[in-house]
Design a protein around this nucleic acid. Structure first.
Length: 688
DNA sequence: TCGCGTCCCATTTTT
DNA sequence: TGGGACGCGA
């Protein structure tokens, strides 16, 4: 039993064994907070003999949740009965049970950002995508900020309340919720339904929250509602790592916690076990430039390690070559490339592919966001929830079966008038409009639905999906598409169908799969087995992760810190983001800036960002890395080359004499490597 | 209703 | 560059 505590330092031990009142743990990066939380779960179960079912451990990302689960179960097998999950998944599960109090059936759909957009634009077709997105963002902010949704308190949002109300009514009609609703609805139910609150409160006696600094006001309200006298509450957070303010996260929740809950004890974990002193020194000096912090000092007993490297390059190609060299020393999986925006991954993907370096891309384009996959998902959403208007619009006439916009609108209007679901209203219109003539073509759609609905109870998910794919005509549709566009959508669908096999038979299975898909953006990629690969990842996604070697790319003006954040006065949040990124590194840390980058097919030049300058000061380092060669006629930007690929500009030249190599980048984005002989160039190798 | 051509714009970050 | 929105003609 006591071996649970073995290897913990005294402060960590205190945090694990603490069991009175409420506990606030302020934990610096790499201070072993996940270890503390998971050990605490195991300790509660094994040492204090707490029923694992009465423990609730929540965090914000699925990745963090599954890691927490794995580690807790490793320490104490009974932890598998504990709810270790994300805020959103937990609330979704509760809403399946108690959603009637919010006007939902247990088959409600969960709308992602795209679905919300489709729904909103069906209500307000006059808005462009951009305008609609803006309004939806405001609505989301409101939902994250204010449980009672008093628009007046958010007057600075300048949101017309009718948008909100109409959108919300449409969601309810569709028996659907958006991400924010998951938490909002359940919190409201707890607030307004004492008997539900009683049941939940008597079940979850121990509540642990990780990454608490990322919670927003509604989540704080949820905690308040989950709490009852006798509940043990423990939250772990670090104000310096709060990076979700744009989503409504309130650092102040850390202060509020001590104010609201009784007799809160505070424990600080400041010893870092992850990084070298050099890395910590740089990261601490950087974050010290922020004004709004509680302040804490982190330290380590680790050995010195390499210096932090600030690297400047004059071209993208140089940068990628540098990264490739770092990557190649040691295992691929030792290195992670971190960047501010998803779009930045593209250059690395192309470059690494060309250089034969295996990589995995974390969380960028979600597998389930592909159109062909979304089609199938829409089908099962609609079969489970025939009120789901977004799914309906997606599948009703794809491929074209004579059930276009006009007929769809009729069906939608009819369903709203009579309060029936969309399948029923489509059926009525198709048959009713013409008792003598042939029924409207939309009857085809109705027949398909009826067919598939029978299949739900009888077929395993993969068989069901395959059936839908073939019978709906989507298979033919995408076969044509693949032929005409050289795409591989059919393969993607196959992969999806294979994957679905594990979910078994029936409505429950279907709904479990849907929920996983909509709430866990990453998990399709996790199954791929080859482990020794470089990680390409946005900084937001690195929360809780660590790597021996970290390269933070793109300290360019307007990129990091982002131009938008400067406009919005969010510089401190960006600095926290950089702090999070830097403190992911265990052994080696490099930060790169690149003065010329190819964007949208054209070369653009960038200045170095504020952060690059701050780090120059901090590291007191003359940046190194740019390796333009010197003595030959082939200089960057000089000389234009033309062949079948179009016009190209010299981007780099290395070596001398016979060994001289010249890199030429064409305006198409194609990059060639050339051997200059006499006055002509010969293609020796295509690199991209 | 649908397919094709043209034009325009683009990149925060996630559940 | 390239994907999406929009308009026009069949």
């Amino acid at each position: 039993m006591l071996n649970l505590l073995e290897g913990l330092n005294p402060v960590q031990r205190e945090a694990v064994t603490h069991d009175k009142n409420s506990l606030l743990i302020l934990a610096g990066p790499g201070s072993g907070k996940t270890r503390v939380i998971t050990t605490k779960v195991a300790y509660l179960i094994q040492e204090l003999r707490i029923d694992p079912n009465s423990i609730l451990a929540v965090t914000f990302t699925n990745k963090a949740a599954s890691e927490m689960r794995e580690r807790a179960v490793a320490l104490s097998p009974e932890a598998r009965f504990t709810s270790i999950t994300t805020f959103h998944s937990f609330c979704a599960r509760m809403l399946r049970k108690y959603g009637t109090f919010a006007g939902l059936t247990s088959d409600f759909s969960i709308y992602d950002t795209d679905d919300s957009m489709t729904l909103f634009r069906s209500l307000y077709p006059e808005f462009t995508k951009k305008e609609a997105g803006e309004i939806l963002r405001k609505i989301s902010k409101l939902k994250n900020f204010d449980i009672d949704l008093r628009l007046s308190t958010m007057s600075n949002l300048s949101l017309d309340s009718s948008y909100y109300e109409k959108y919300q009514a449409a969601l309810l009609r569709a028996n659907a919720v958006d991400f924010d609703d998951l938490i909002l609805h359940f919190t409201k139910i707890l607030k307004n339904q004492p008997e539900v609150k009683m049941r939940i409160a008597s079940q979850y006696r121990y509540i642990l929250v990780d990454e608490y600094q990322d919670s927003n006001l509604v989540q704080f309200e949820l905690l308040k509602q989950l709490y009852s006298p006798g509940t043990y509450l423990c939250v772990v957070g670090d104000e310096d790592q709060s990076i979700y303010r744009f989503r409504g996260a309130e650092i102040e929740n850390i202060l509020r916690f001590s104010e609201y809950f009784k007799d809160v004890e505070t424990i600080r974990l400041e010893q870092n076990y992850r990084s070298t002193p050099n890395i910590l020194k740089a990261a601490s000096a950087l974050i010290a430039k922020n004004e709004s912090r509680l302040g804490k000092s982190i330290w380590t007993e680790n050995s010195e390690g390499k210096e932090v490297g600030l690297k400047y390059f004059s071209s993208n190609i140089d940068e990628i070559e540098f990264c490739a060299n770092v990557v190649r020393e040691g295992s691929y999986s030792d290195t992670a490339i971190l960047y501010r925006t998803n779009a930045q991954s593209f250059a690395f993907e192309r470059g690494f592919t060309a250089l034969g370096i295996p990589y995995k891309l974390v969380g960028a384009l979600r597998f389930f966001d592909r159109a062909e996959i979304k089609d199938l998902i829409a089908w099962i959403s609609f079969l489970l929830n025939p009120c789901d208007i977004v799914a309906f619009k997606r599948i009703a006439n794809k491929p074209a079966r004579g059930f276009g916009g006009v007929a769809q609108k009729k069906a939608i209007a009819q369903s709203q008038e009579s309060g029936t679901d969309l399948l029923q209203s489509t059926r009525e219109i198709a048959l009713g409009a013409s008792s003598k003539k042939k029924p409207h073509k939309s009857i085809e759609f109705v027949k398909l639905c009826e067919l598939f609905m029978q299949d739900i109870e009888n077929l395993t998910l993969d068989k069901l999906l395959l059936n839908i794919f073939i019978e709906s005509g989507l298979k033919m549709f995408y076969e044509d598409h693949d032929k005409n566009n050289d795409s591989s959508k059919i393969d993607n669908v196959k992969e999806f169908i294979d994957f679905s096999a594990r979910y078994g038979v029936g409505r429950e299975a279907l709904s479990a799969m849907l929920e996983r898909i909509s709430l866990d953006s990453q998990f399709a990629q996790e199954q791929e087995g080859n482990d020794d690969v470089v990680t390409l990842i946005t900084i937001h996604n690195t929360k809780g992760l660590e790597f021996p070697k970290v390269i933070i790319s793109g300290l360019e003006e307007g990129i990091f810190p982002s131009a938008r954040s400067l406009e919005n006065n969010d510089l401190e949040e960006e600095r926290r983001l950089l702090y999070v990124a830097m403190t992911r590194a265990q052994q080696e840390l490099y930060l790169t800036y690149c003065s010329n980058k190819n964007i949208w097919g054209f070369e653009r030049s960038f200045g170095k960002s504020l952060f690059a300058k701050e780090l120059e000061d901090i590291l007191n380092q003359t940046p190194s890395g740019s390796n333009d060669s010197t003595d030959h006629p082939y200089k960057r930007g000089q000389g234009v080359y033309q062949d079948d690929y179009g016009y190209g500009v010299i981007t780099k030249a290395v070596g001398e004499g016979k060994n001289l190599l010249v890199f030429v980048q064409f305006e198409t984005g194609f990059v060639g490597r050339f051997l200059p002989e006499f006055d002509s160039l010969e293609l020796v190798e295509s690199r991209y």
